[in-house]
Write a protein that binds this DNA or RNA. Structure first.
Length: 257
DNA sequence: ATGGTCGGCAACCGA
């Protein structure tokens, strides 16, 4: 079972690239974030034409998540249990035996802002959501754009960027509490190198060429699922040696019978 | 150099 995550930064702009990527990589499910489209305008037909189907929750201009899969998704839920009017940042579904939770975690703007508090609270709500809906013994993958570089290996200048919203002690604590539910970082099962990134800021001149990046996109698995994880890799296009957007996809393979 | 560049969408907001 091949599962991928990609912050697309507009699914409509990225559509031709996504279609090509799906046809080449053939994942069982691709979880996307920042679709930036209302549900009525989601380009689901384009995916159906190549043998995929999509579930999605979006809004105008901002946020929005989707899961694009070959097989039909079951037990679909949009957002947290008790707050249907919240920003569209979470989709839960089940694909065969695999439970999937796709999240676009708030970025947080600045450490002393309301948006940063919203980010921290979001983690607490997410932990409640996991406790309510799952057990650590379930086959559960939690993936998406987390807007966190977990360790000093996961961003280009940990000292200079220390305390920024995606590399902040409060965010690290908040993430750890959710990880303590029973999650394992699939990428770190297979790779302990520093400077392996999934995001490069457009605003930094030649940021990608200079590898001024962050590892913000993650695939976390509960222990029984992590035991079945045979590979996890960050996808830089081997032909162009480039990334498709400001983010790049991350892919994990699980041997599930 | 407190900037830079994208995307949405039509003036700025978000990242």
């Amino acid at each position: 079972m091949k599962i991928a995550s990609f912050n697309v930064n507009s699914i409509r702009t990225r559509l031709p690239l996504l279609i090509e990527w799906l046809q080449k990589n053939q994942p069982d499910a691709l979880c996307v974030q920042e679709t930036k489209v209302q549900d009525k305008d989601f380009p689901k037909e384009a995916f159906e034409e190549i043998g995929y189907q999509a579930i999605f929750a979006g809004q105008k201009s901002y946020n929005g998540v989707a899961i694009i899969s070959k097989q039909k998704l079951q037990k679909i839920q949009y957002g947290f249990d008790d707050e249907p009017k919240d920003q569209p940042r979470l989709i839960k579904a089940k694909l065969g035996k695999l439970n999937i939770v796709n999240t676009y975690i708030p970025q947080g703007f600045e450490p002393d802002s309301e948006k940063f508090q919203y980010k921290l609270e979001w983690f607490a709500r997410l932990l409640n959501f996991f406790k309510k809906n799952f057990k650590p013994s379930d086959l559960l993958v939690w993936l998406g754009d987390f807007n966190i570089a977990p360790t000093d290996k996961d961003l280009y200048d940990p000292q200079g960027l220390s305390g920024s919203v995606c590399y902040h002690p409060d965010v690290h604590k908040a993430l750890q509490k959710v990880m303590d539910f029973g999650f394992v970082d699939c990428f770190r099962l297979h790779n302990d190198q520093a400077s392996q990134y999934t995001f490069w800021d457009y605003r930094l001149p030649n940021g990608f060429k200079r590898n001024l990046g962050w590892r913000l996109d993650h695939i976390m698995a509960t222990k029984p699922l992590a035991d079945k994880c045979t590979a996890c890799l960050i996808d830089i296009d081997p032909r162009t040696k480039d990334r498709p957007s400001d983010h790049t996809p991350i892919i994990a393979e699980f041997k599930i019978d």
